[in-house]
Design a binder for these strands. Structure first.
Lengths: 234, 234
DNA sequence: GATTATTAGTGACTGTAATCACATATTTTT
DNA sequence: AAAAATATGTGATTACAGTCACTAATAATC
């Protein structure tokens, strides 16, 4: 059934496009046209979508799942820069300039993505100036995130840094339950350490300390219950 | 003399516009039109162009001089995020979103800027899609810088961090002389410390150490001679 | 379901940078 | 040019996070 398959592909594409802020201002007709240009790919947990040094030829939009973006420091430690999830896009920096990828993006779970080739992307930007504005806006948000991370990396007191991380995650991933806020950590202890730029052992110790103080409760490796959110805010 | 004053204003505006990559793709006629929309302002050393929390209504382009962008960490320390100089622009993130300024921009010397109002900027973006692409490109560069800083902040070894800073400055501000590379530091010791996220005393000590090792020579507070660049690269 | 691999917690020890305190230089102001 | 303000260098001490080494727990694989 050609109609069915076409409808299905259309439907799948629409799904992807509707999740992404940069396509929001488009009308039905334009969306349909652009949907035709989009390719789909799936990744297993732990696979790299692209690696530091790669030459990219498309912009990638996450449709399902999450991924970490990291680069290696001079010491050889993995420094996590971003966590990307549903609706986030990346690779746009490499489409316009000649730069190769400055970081590696690796999935944290099974991930579905939509990709749009460099040529199509550039044509779209010229055709829909609104989209360019949306992207500038989105990049503003991304920079805001990065500046926030930098600010917190500049904090010398590691307790403060872990507290802000927990509060950030609480806002993003937390669900209110009777006893407090239950949150599903997107990263392992090592991941958290690589995000904060501290040793894995330090993260373990600080979390143990918080548990001793009755501020959090460790539910499982990847899940924490925040009992006293106010204490984290100081 | 109206012609003269007009020519002069035109000339001044042209100066400003020619320094800025985002206006580079425009033809003469368009440049002339846009030049009319640009306002000029001067700042003394130490003045703030805008402050964390301000509501901005224009994009600012530096025409002459330099400035630092910083925000305060939770501990009350000043964390420097960027150094802006001739040709750099900022404030574009706040024009499209409702966000207020997330950092303060303070001049490091006398500074001349050109400003373009929010309304004009948005109209230009819709009118010249090329310009949007230029800005996306430029933001990509800015993010690249920030990611680089983050990476280096994640380095635990402070010697390494100071070494990279000196190498960065050497590339940006250094001039080759007989004995090595002479560089005019854009920041004081305290500024360097606030950029690296370490104590002022630590910067002093590390630089003294480098001087004892014969790798650098302190010429004056704001000027350093790098004698052995290779040693800094390890 | 057993085995292997990965991830996490904890003690002991060490190194390094922060802090405090002050002397000295340098820059700015008057 | 003198005075005031600011910036820098350095010693002594302390605190705190890193490293190493190991055990325990959890997840992945066969």
């Amino acid at each position: 059934m050609p109609e069915n398959s076409q409808q299905c592909s259309h439907c799948k594409n629409k799904l992807c496009m509707h999740k992404v802020p940069i396509f929001n201002n488009l009308n039905h007709e334009d969306m349909f046209k652009i949907a035709e240009l989009i390719q789909h790919k799936n990744y297993k947990k732990g696979e790299s979508i692209f690696s530091q040094g790669d030459n990219l030829d498309s912009i990638v939009i996450i449709n399902e799942g999450s991924a970490k973006a990291y680069k290696y420091t001079q010491e050889g430690r993995e420094q996590i820069l971003y966590l990307f999830s549903e609706g986030d896009f990346f690779g746009e920096q490499y489409l316009l300039s000649k730069r190769t990828a400055t970081y590696t993006v690796q999935t944290l779970e099974a991930v579905k993505v939509c990709t749009l080739s460099k040529e199509h992307f550039q044509k779209l930007l010229l055709q829909y100036p609104d989209m360019g504005i949306k992207i500038i806006e989105e990049l503003g948000t991304r920079m805001f995130r990065l500046e926030h991370v930098m600010e917190s990396m500049g904090v010398r007191n590691i307790d403060l840094r872990i507290h802000s991380l927990l509060l950030d995650y609480s806002a993003k991933y937390g669900k209110k339950v009777a006893e407090g806020v239950l949150l599903q950590l997107p990263l392992s202890r090592e991941g958290i350490a690589n995000y904060l730029g501290v040793a894995r052992e330090t993260v373990s110790r600080k979390l143990s300390q918080l548990e001793n103080d009755g501020i959090i409760r460790s539910v499982s490796n990847k899940s924490i219950l925040i009992l006293n959110e106010v204490a984290l805010e100081e």
